[in-house]
Design a protein around this nucleic acid. Sequence first.
DNA 1: CTAACATATGAACATGTATTCATATGTTGT
DNA 2: ACAACATATGAATACATGTTCATATGTTAG
Lengths: 122, 122
Amino acid sequence: MQTKECTEDICEQLCEHPQIICIAKKESISDSEAQQVAEIFKLLGDPTRVKILQVLTKRELCVCDIAAVIEMGQSAVSHQLRLLRNARLVRYRREGKMAWYSLDDEHVRSLLSQGIDHIKHR
Amino acid sequence: MQTKECTEDICEQLCEHPQIICIAKKESISDSEAQQVAEIFKLLGDPTRVKILQVLTKRELCVCDIAAVIEMGQSAVSHQLRLLRNARLVRYRREGKMAWYSLDDEHVRSLLSQGIDHIKHR
DNA sequence: CTAACATATGAACATGTATTCATATGTTGT
DNA sequence: ACAACATATGAATACATGTTCATATGTTAG
């Protein structure tokens, strides 16, 4: 990790291009923003979660049905659903012993379908 | 990992909802598609790479400038750039000892800006 | 109340990944 | 040819993450 002085008017580096660095820094997002953006994509960055989210795109499903559809164990699915629930990407409601999950974020629906389109057209 | 029988017309399970599972399975994406989609999002799922891609959104930069802008070591940046290069998310050209990197995928530009929008509006 | 069931969760394990350090590769100027 | 430089890369380390197993929680039917 390098720490470089880089004020508005005085930029003293060796190899780098001081002005460009200064401008680019101002246009760059903050650490915390980058972290938050990465957090969302990280959740979309696992095949199991992609499959879960994709099937929830079509309809609300209960846990055991999700597990059956994507052919994974109930526990694995439940753990992943917890992550998605915490990030508010899925909504869930209890109905007796069943827990019904559905997509809870139109942004994510859109990101997901863009991701799927992306790999289909290339 | 559970493996369940699930043909077109005969669905025999215990707790699950057979018809829904059959329909949902047909609408679900394949393992390899889910894998590929996850691969893309996984690349977007790291704060360092988010920052790199975001600064490359604005302009082409050389490695040492990227490192200076995002305040990371040259080696770390270079390693990440290799991943992005292999996935063809960034283009690069050599100019003497310098290597200039730029965004090479409009889909990714769009995904990235959607991701950034998403965390900004909530 | 009890048994059967659906879901959630903690612990353990294996695997993947990001950064750092040291060094290699390849270029430029002298 | 040599020194300075920009970038790339292999190895090592530390850390994060996904799945499984066992079990806990909470609900329904009898």
